[in-house]
């Protein structure tokens, strides 16, 4: 059963990733990418997740989710650790780990409507 890009709950995601903790160690520090840069980079995400990641429909909203959860999810997509992924694995591979961290921080800081 496929339920969405972010189909696993936080709990199951952490379970899924527990074997790869070293690879996927989450660093809570903000990234070094300039703010304008991250803002422009994040704007592509709006095309499926709505402006500022706010739209919840068939594709889930990403605004306001914890940065650690978003980053772990993005890294799981990038490393093909998320079963039944449709397109996010292909998208996540287009960004460096640092860029994915920046995106996670960016959307975590958006106040969910």
């Amino acid at each position: 059963m496929i339920s969405g890009y972010l189909s696993c709950t936080r709990g199951s995601l952490i379970g899924l990733l527990s074997g790869a903790t070293l690879l996927l160690a989450i660093n809570a520090q903000a990234s070094d990418l300039p703010e304008r840069q991250v803002s422009l980079m994040s704007s592509s995400c709006a095309n499926c997740h709505g402006t500022d990641g706010q739209l919840a429909g068939a594709i889930p909203a990403i605004a306001g989710r914890p940065a650690s959860v978003l980053e772990a999810q993005l890294l799981a997509f990038k490393q093909d650790l998320q079963p039944n992924t449709t397109v996010m694995n292909r998208i996540a591979k287009g960004y460096t780990d640092e860029e994915l961290k920046s995106l996670a921080n960016y959307f975590a800081n958006v106040k969910r409507k």
Binding site: M1, I2, G4, Y5, A46, N47, C48, H49, G50, T51, L55, G57, A58, I59, N84, T86, V87
Partner: peptide, 21 residues
């Protein structure tokens, strides 16, 4: 077929998101 069905649903999700954006 579940993946094909999911992509069809995401196509609708995409359409709504990009026209909202």
């Amino acid at each position: 077929s579940e993946i094909r069905q999911a992509e069809a649903a995401y196509a609708v999700g995409w359409y709504e998101a990009i026209t909202q954006d």
